[in-house]
Amino acid sequence: MNLIDFLLRNRAEFITLTLQHLFLVGVSTGIALVVGVPLGILLTRRPRFSPSVLGLANIFQTIPSLALFGFLIPLPFIGGVGARTAIVALVLYALLPIIRNTYAGIQGIDPAVREAGRGMGMTDRQLLLMVEIPLAFGVILAGIRVATVIGVGVATIAAAIGAGGLGVFIFRGVAMVNNTLILAGAVPAALIALVADFLLGRLERHFAPARGQLAEVRAV
């Protein structure tokens, strides 16, 4: 078959682009996780900030990806052409589902559970670590899964600003009107998204809803 033939002949470049792709998604989702989960927890402590923070994250996610790259390129320090700009954009995309699910997952816990915990003399930290995060874990994982899948998709477009990744094959294929080249980027990218979705989905089902007792908590 043409496609497999092509990938075998160009395996060095194919492997490089795949690794670049995984790097873009991994680093950006990782940063979004480190920022988004604490931010989501913070919002449950200061709920009056939640409309503005979630609104802002929502705006970032609503901007079309190519346009967001366009906005970032002229900016000093974070902008320019290359992987750094792409990672900034990918982080902005990944933030919304992670913040929102962390917030919703914790807010969705039965208030009586929280009151009982506080009434028994749990500190805020103990309540968070022993009760809230374990109970919200499945919902938080669902957010991470959505963020990762979006990231794999958006990362294909990052090639347009010189960040590499499997999008390079796709854009080159479009320019050269070469279907094999397009598929050489599109098929592996789609496979990465599907595999990530499958693996994180299994993890999610393993943890959530905590032993079937949190039917009312669902990802929004």
């Binding site: 039965d110 559970v113 009982a116 915990g117 028994m120 109970l135 007792q213």
Partner: peptide, 21 residues
Amino acid sequence: DPTKLRRRIGYVIQDIGLFPH
């Protein structure tokens, strides 16, 4: 100290609030 105080006082509420996990 609120946590010390609460650990010396048993607290039972209508919605019970058992930890489901």
